[in-house]
Design a protein around this nucleic acid. Structure first.
Lengths: 348, 348
DNA sequence: CTGTGTAAAGCAAACGGTTCCATAAGGAGG
DNA sequence: CCTCCTTATGGAACCGTTTGCTTTACACAG
């Protein structure tokens, strides 16, 4: 049926070990034997059985990208697409396969990851975000499995992670609005247990503080990274007596929701409300008006995560002291949603 | 280190075979032993080694989703996201893992698929599209590996495939424009070697023919499933002396390109040009104006593909005569890009 | 001519399971 | 009381590789 190393060995008149050594370019194999065996392998269409190989080498040449929520929900954000794109591209270049796993909740995610890792189906994991409290990270840490976080954790210091400087990013975004003359700026945040939400909120606050602008609690609302949250936030803000003239939204999807709502109410962007958000997903420039966004290099984030993880799998440099936090630069992309604003005209 | 079946056996005072049987709920194990062993497994934190299991069972409980192009390029289309979403969701429900693989070209794809299948790393493959001539399919067919096609092949009859009725879908899309009063309708096609392009083109032609409308070769342009193609097609069409008043585009991404171009030139949609395209990706309703699109149930396509594949892996019903082509229904979603058109007013 | 070093290849024991076959212990039937 | 089944378990081979330890065969120095 399938041709194994033994079949090749028999045909070549050598032992299986010799064939195995030919395969791995062992130095102590004569050129002659090597050539002969290789020819026969080619001839018989031999392909190594990865399972057998993995069994003995305890290595699988594949990594897992684990999603904290059911695939259904998460994938609606283009963010993940970009991330996967980066991960798969890099992994494939390093000769690694990528396995996508997802659970309905944190418990299921833990089960899946544990099964894959303990069952030796993957060598390491790429994790997304970081809740402030995370059983999956605990598991990975205490079992010493290779993993990298896209995002960061505030609980552990020595965790390998790839992230943006979200505080700075939000600072930049907010400052941009300030420089356009806005003085009442609101913030649509994400789930408060996500560090990314808190970092961005912190950056927003820092910018306001820095410019001596008013900071009101009612100008900050929490939501999910979904359109709906934006929609709801919008209607809340627009009903405020002294409403903001500009909004920083934690994710582009949120902006789309805001846009949709504003559109329905015939408000104009950016004249009635200017918007800047984060992530700069491929859609941001397609909406109307196009949304100003902080490009956080999602693809790059994924690419780097994969690279760092695989590097760590290959040589677990547990020497503390090395860099273990990789910061991907961001940059503000100004588009129509925050240009020529009413507020700006006022101040000029 | 890791706890194996033997460790459990030793601690339980039984043989490894007994533990193995407990694991697989073998009927001839006493309830008592079963309970005891299970308790000990739990206690020691035993997780079966998938590699070892796979080695003997020749089964991996995972499938591969193979992408014909480098991940970089392909993933820019939200189509894949949706597809993966469906695949991963269903596979995970069936207890299967999904591996994403991609090559830079057909040859690389073949290599990857062959490596995964012959190396027994996955049990089956989901393939995308179908070129009219496909080495990968040849390989899979002749080696009798389980696989399912998303799309269809015109060369083979007994291939498992999940698809839409693209001819009908294009017919519906075109008829919709015709019913809005358009008489000069153009078509932006995809690569001519893809069957989906040809089917949609055929449906477009059929609709025109059916209504006795003029059919011009210059009203049909070919491109990729990318924004750029739309952009280019747009500038070509708009420079035509007797230009179409409406366009059918083979993919939503193409429409976005058209929209962008039209926007730059200050043309209005749908007044200057009405648009209908295919796939109804999550963005279609977010663009401005929102795009009319044929919803082909991408998620459903992926979900079904996974289901059919796994079913086939579990029990290779090679009885010809069974259904092997699954058709996912489509439906037209009419949005602003094809409503209230100038052309319509003209005829009313 | 014997001893030693070295290159090339073989042997066999893992890796962690599964499964066919054998065995032991009871219980039933003669 | 002795067979014959049945049921619950153990033993061992095997899945396809890798790899440490030998073995073989020379070549060369003493």
């Amino acid at each position: 049926m399938t041709v194994t190393i033994k079949d090749v060995a028999k045909k070549a008149g050598v032992s299986p070990s010799t064939v195995s050594r030919v395969l791995s370019n062992h130095p102590r194999i004569s050129l002659e034997t090597s050539r002969k065996v290789k020819a026969i392998m080619e001839d018989m269409g031999y392909t190594p059985n990865m399972m057998a190989k993995s069994l003995v080498s305890k290595t699988t040449n594949s990594i897992c990208f684990s999603l904290p929520k059911p695939a259904e929900e998460l994938f609606s954000n283009l963010f993940f697409m970009e991330l996967i794109r980066g991960i798969v591209t890099q992994a494939s270049r390093s000769g690694y396969d990528v396995l996508i796993s997802s659970g309905a909740n944190e418990k299921e995610e833990l089960e899946a990851v544990s099964r894959l890792l303990k069952g030796r189906r993957v060598d390491g994991v790429i994790l997304l975000y970081s809740r402030t409290d995370d059983a999956v990270i605990d598991f990975l840490e205490s079992n010493d499995y290779p993993f990298v976080l896209v995002g960061r954790s505030d609980r552990y210091e020595n965790i390998l992670s790839v992230d943006n400087d979200n505080v700075m990013a939000a600072y930049d975004a907010t400052n941009h609005l300030i420089s356009m003359g806005h003085e009442r700026i609101g913030f649509v945040s994400g789930p408060p247990n996500l560090i990314v939400s808190r970092d961005r909120l912190a950056g927003y606050r820092k910018a306001l503080l820095n410019s001596g602008l008013e900071m009101r609690d009612e100008w900050i609302v929490e939501g999910e990274f979904l359109q709906d949250s934006g929609y709801r936030a919008m209607s809340f803000f627009m009903n405020l007596p002294n409403r903001p003239t500009a909004l920083v939204a934690v994710d582009d999807m949120v902006s789309f929701g805001i846009l949709r709502g504003l559109n329905e109410l015939k408000y104009k962007v950016p004249d009635d409300l200017a918007i800047v958000s984060f992530n700069n997903i491929p859609l941001s420039e397609l909406s109307s008006p196009p949304i100003s966004s902080i490009d956080i290099g999602i693809y790059h984030l994924g690419y780097t995560a994969s690279q760092v993880l695989i590097q760590n799998i290959k040589s677990p440099n547990h020497d503390a002291g090395y860099t273990n936090r990789f910061v991907i630069p961001h940059r503000l992309i100004v588009r129509e949603s925050s240009m020529y604003s009413h507020a700006k005209n006022k101040t000029e």
